[in-house]
C-alpha cells in the first residue's frame, strides 16, 4: 500500500516486493537485494530496517530502541529515521503493513 512520509508514529512497515532485506556476514552489513542488484546499508539504516521489518516494531518503538541504544534524544533519532524512510520510500523498498 502507498505511504506518505513523514509516517505516523504508530505505523508499521515491511519490505515491498521484490526487495529483500538481510544481514550479510561476509560484507559485515545489512543489504537490500533486488533483481540484478544489491544496496549496502550503513549501520543506522540497517538497524532501522532490522527493527521495523525483522522485529516488527512500530516507528515509535524503533525510535525508542535506537535512542536507548545510542544514548541520544528521541527527537534527533526521530528525524534520522524519517529521513531514511523517505529515501526508502522513494526507492520503493518499503510499504505500510496493515
Amino acid at each position: 500500500m502507498e505511504l506518505n512520509v513523514p509516517l505516523p508514529h504508530d505505523a508499521f512497515i515491511q519490505m515491498a516486493r521484490p526487495f529483500r532485506f538481510q544481514w550479510e556476514p561476509a560484507q559485515d552489513c545489512f543489504v537490500i537485494l533486488y533483481p540484478e542488484g544489491m544496496v549496502k546499508l550503513n549501520q543506522a539504516a540497517g538497524l532501522i530496517l532490522n527493527l521495523c521489518c525483522k522485529h516488527n516494531q512500530s516507528l515509535a518503538q524503533t525510535v525508542e530502541s535506537l535512542a536507548q541504544d545510542f544514548g541520544q534524544e528521541p527527537q534527533s533519532i526521530q528525524d534520522d529515521v524519517q529521513e531514511f524512510l523517505r529515501i526508502a520510500h522513494d526507492n520503493r523498498w518499503i510499504e505500510l503493513r496493515q
Binding site: 560484507q27 544496496v39 549496502k40 546499508l41 550503513n42 531514511f84 529515501i87
Partner: peptide
C-alpha cells in the same frame, strides 16, 4: 547512508554474483 553494493569493490574480493 547508502552505497550501491554491486559497484563497491571489496577487499579481499567477494564473488557476490
Amino acid at each position: 547512508m547508502i552505497t550501491d553494493g554491486l559497484n563497491s569493490g571489496s577487499k579481499p574480493p567477494i564473488p557476490l554474483w
